[in-house]
């Protein structure tokens, strides 16, 4: 028998601290598998967010840095400009990227920085206990929208992939999900394509990945996958928004 699925070299052996069934773990593995398969581990530099993935530098077996909340695209910009031969990627949640980090991400994509953003959209602030994020859906109950988000009070959820795809500097923008095996495979393909976009120096690339937060959604891991499919995918359509 030969091994067909095992731990990728681009992950350390440290166990993840994530909650049971949290799909941050799946996304970490996919990023690592892409680094392995494209033989990029030794030239990769990753930037961690503030959020549940704040400890990702313990997990990825490549050079890693920690950014202040939302500032990962700014750090990535500096590193990539100084070391253009490296593969530079950020890993960011929706609070990190679309709230406090909105300025950084919009301008990094606008400038066409040749970096890759792995954007994990779980429609909530996970780490801090489930507050409303800019991506929280209308009607969604969070600790800061206890009766459900309303457009009157909090406006509408932001569609980051569509928004950033408008920028001329954006070379590859895609939205995927990790709620079932087929979508996990598609997510891996998209991450690979984003890394290749950067290695071909085409410009800014981002994969927005719809992910679960069973703990703060108040659901079991399996219910959370269903909630993602029924509620998030209709509002956040999957697909490629920019390819060049």
């Amino acid at each position: 028998m030969k091994v067909v699925a095992q731990r990728p070299e681009s992950l350390t052996d440290a166990p993840f601290h994530y909650c049971p069934g949290c799909t941050h773990g799946i996304i970490h593995r996919l990023v690592a598998e892409c680094l392995d398969e494209l033989n990029l581990r030794e030239q990769a530099i990753g930037i961690c967010p503030v959020g549940c993935a704040v400890l990702a530098y313990d997990y990825f077996n490549c050079d890693m840095l920690e950014a202040a909340h939302g500032r990962a695209p700014a750090i990535a910009t500096g590193i990539k400009r100084l070391l253009p031969d490296r593969l530079v990627f950020t890993y960011q949640g929706d609070g990190d990227l679309a709230s406090i980090g909105m300025g950084e991400i919009v301008h990094a994509s606008g400038r066409g920085e040749n970096i890759t953003v792995i954007f994990v959209n779980n429609a909530i602030y996970g780490m801090t206990g489930g507050q409303m994020a800019p991506t929280t859906l209308l009607g969604q109950v969070t600790t800061t929208s206890p009766y459900g988000r309303t457009a009157e009070q909090a406006g509408y959820p932001l569609k980051m992939a569509e928004l950033l795809a408008q920028n001329q500097g954006a070379a590859y923008i895609c939205r995927t999900a990790v709620n079932n095996p087929a979508n996990v495979m598609r997510t891996k393909k998209a991450i690979k394509k984003a890394f290749q976009t950067q290695m071909q120096a085409k410009g800014f690339s981002m994969v927005e990945i719809l992910s679960t937060c069973p703990t703060n959604w108040g659901l079991s891991p399996l219910e959370a996958l269903e909630w993602l499919e029924k509620n998030m995918i209709p509002y956040y359509p999957l697909g490629e928004f920019k390819v060049s």
Partner: peptide, 20 residues
């Protein structure tokens, strides 16, 4: 059948799959 789907979905890399 060694399809690997369990390992594909496991968030904590618990599973190793081998196939003929």
């Amino acid at each position: 059948n060694g399809c690997g789907i369990c390992a594909l979905m496991c968030p904590d890399l618990v599973i190793t799959v081998e196939r003929e």
